[in-house]
Amino acid sequence: MERQVIHLVATILLVEDDDDLAELVQMHLKFQGHEVYRVNRVSDAKVQYSQQHFDLLILDRGLPDGDGLDICHELRRRQDWIPVLVLTARDGELDKVDGLEAGVDDYITKPFSVLEFQARVRNVLRRVSQTLDVKHDVSPVHDSMNFGVLTIIPALHQVSINDKDVSLTATEFSLLQFLATRPGRVYSKDELLDHVWDTSHSGYHHTVCSTINRLRSKLSLSDSEHHFIQTVWGVGYKFQPQH
Rank of each mutant, 00 (worst) to 15 (best):
V114G: 00
L57T: 09
G33H: 01
A89S: 02
E35N: 13
D80L: 11
Q52F: 05
E35V: 15
D223L: 08
A119L: 11
G103M: 07
T231Y: 04
G148V: 00
F112E: 08
L221I: 10
L175T: 02
F178H: 09
I12K: 04
D190V: 14
P64A: 07
H73W: 01
D194E: 15
V5P: 08
D18Q: 03
I82S: 09
D17R: 06
E191M: 07
L125P: 08
A10Q: 08
S144A: 14
A45K: 03
V25N: 07
G184P: 02
V86G: 07
V235N: 12
S202A: 13
K110R: 08
D70E: 04
A170S: 10
L56A: 06
L100R: 02
R76W: 04
T231D: 09
D60F: 05
H157W: 09
V86E: 10
G66E: 01
D106V: 00
T181W: 09
V134L: 15
V84K: 03
E23M: 11
P111A: 03
V42D: 02
T207F: 06
R76N: 06
R122E: 03
A89N: 08
V47C: 10
D133G: 12
S144H: 12
Q48T: 14
H7V: 11
Q4D: 11
L14T: 04
F173W: 00
P64R: 01
Y237Q: 00
D65L: 06
D194R: 15
G234A: 09
D106L: 03
K110A: 02
L75P: 01
E172L: 08
K238I: 11
M27K: 14
I161E: 03
D190N: 15
D19A: 14
Q32I: 03
V134Y: 14
D98F: 08
D70H: 09
N162S: 10
I212H: 02
F112Q: 10
H142I: 09
P64Y: 01
T11A: 14
R182L: 13
P140E: 04
V47L: 11
L179D: 00
D105V: 02
H195D: 12
I229T: 00
T151P: 12
E116S: 10
D163V: 11
H73S: 11
K46L: 12
H227Q: 13
S139W: 14
I153A: 09
Q32Y: 00
L175A: 08
T181D: 15
E225P: 08
R38K: 13
W197C: 11
L59Y: 08
L57R: 04
K189N: 10
I82D: 06
I71A: 05
S174D: 12
E35Q: 13
P140H: 06
D163T: 13
V196Y: 04
I58K: 00
L175Q: 03
V141T: 12
E74W: 05
E35R: 14
R78I: 05
V208A: 05
K46S: 11
R214F: 05
K96I: 06
P140S: 06
V84L: 02
V39L: 00
R120H: 06
T131H: 14
D20L: 11
E225R: 12
D20C: 05
A22V: 03
Q230W: 02
K189A: 12
S222F: 07
G66F: 00
E116A: 06
Y204S: 01
L29W: 01
F239G: 02
D163P: 09
D67C: 09
L57E: 03
D198R: 15
L150V: 04
